[in-house]
Write a protein that binds this DNA or RNA. Sequence first.
DNA 1: GGCGATTTGTCCGTATGTATA
DNA 2: CTATACATACGGACAAATCGC
Lengths: 243, 243
Amino acid sequence: MARTPVWTAITTTLRGEIAGGQYRAGDKLPTEAELATRFGVNRHTVRRALGDLAEAGIVRARRGAGVFVESSPTDYPIGRRVRFHQNIRAAGRTPIKQVLRVETRLADEVEAAALALGKGAEVVVYEGLSSLSDAPVALFTSTFPAALLPHLGESLAAGGSVTEALAANGVPDYIRRDTRITAEAATPTQALHLRVREGAPVLRTVAVNTLLDGTPIEYGVSFFAGERIALTVALDDTKDSLD
Amino acid sequence: MARTPVWTAITTTLRGEIAGGQYRAGDKLPTEAELATRFGVNRHTVRRALGDLAEAGIVRARRGAGVFVESSPTDYPIGRRVRFHQNIRAAGRTPIKQVLRVETRLADEVEAAALALGKGAEVVVYEGLSSLSDAPVALFTSTFPAALLPHLGESLAAGGSVTEALAANGVPDYIRRDTRITAEAATPTQALHLRVREGAPVLRTVAVNTLLDGTPIEYGVSFFAGERIALTVALDDTKDSLD
DNA sequence: GGCGATTTGTCCGTATGTATA
DNA sequence: CTATACATACGGACAAATCGC
């Protein structure tokens, strides 16, 4: 059995702590000596791990100063009215949306169930890739009931945001009903689009958006590059019922 | 470059769709012929993939009837007042909590910042493993301010739930402030505890729980077996401000 | 219960690329 | 370099189990 080298474990641990938000962009990591003590290894072993992170552009070492976090994952808030573009622009970065496919076809069983459609109903399917400053972060597939939104396809193909396309089709507002989040290994196709290695961890979110009256309007499955994006669940401004 | 076999990709895709909730336990998958058409491969190739899922106990084939989902991931709701034990018991399953370590020590920088503590403050650290019907699902580390909860360590070591231990120490209620979710590859240690293969996708959640007045009371980092657990964010009963 | 359509299980064979001796 | 073995992938045929009418 091939044991994993110690430095690999250290790399993974530190990468995880940066991804998890313990250390944010600009933060200074503990000194090499401190890390060596913490992991119970020699300072050279820590350096091997830090070297890997530096090569990957995650940290940068400055002689005499310390090792600093270069890039930490982008926060992607999940909430009732989350809109990808608005959120990201608010964070001062430039979002890019690339349309991979827009088509109208019959709903499969899963889609029909999620959108509360009958058998044989048509859906508009929108597949795309969201990027941030040249780094792809999310691969998404959104499904809309074609009957409610007859001209949505053309609006989406134009390349704007989903919110805009929906607004142009008479849906001024919508809310997120629920979201399921799982972690998976990237398939080859996902790896290609998200520019991660095959088998790298990705976040899958499955969500249903509804009109204010509860009518399902969008069924979306998204895959996020797990180590570049942190989904945040903000529950600050909410009140819910008892336990 | 070693190409990945087609059947592997199909296995991963189907496993993901089951994990993502498209197909729930008891559901019937599309027929082999339908899947073959969908993926554009021969029926035998689909069978190879289904065979793998069957061997892993994820699906079960019944001749003449179809292929049915055997096990789908457990829902783990994230909300303001989420308690692991209560939730799971509500789902009719038996939760087990295993104490790996309870200690009191000085807070490191990250912990101090999260709990709004000064330098040199002491914290109670509780590390454990949550299981469900013999299957480990979450590896967690919770950190509490020792000053506010002087006897928490003993309560936790007794093995009850965190909610109970906090209640016994004068904290009748607490709420979750925010949660960050990322996907990572399992380290060897995590893989061992969660009984997944090394490098398997895990969900990392970082959360801060506070008293009703906003005082941070718990800083927790948990790792979930990504393909056995689906974090669900229910936003049904909430109202939040504008966009 | 019977019958036919559907669906999985098993067997035959063919071809191709890759790793190994 | 050749021979062999193995995994991948496709195609077809038929048996056996299941389900709906």
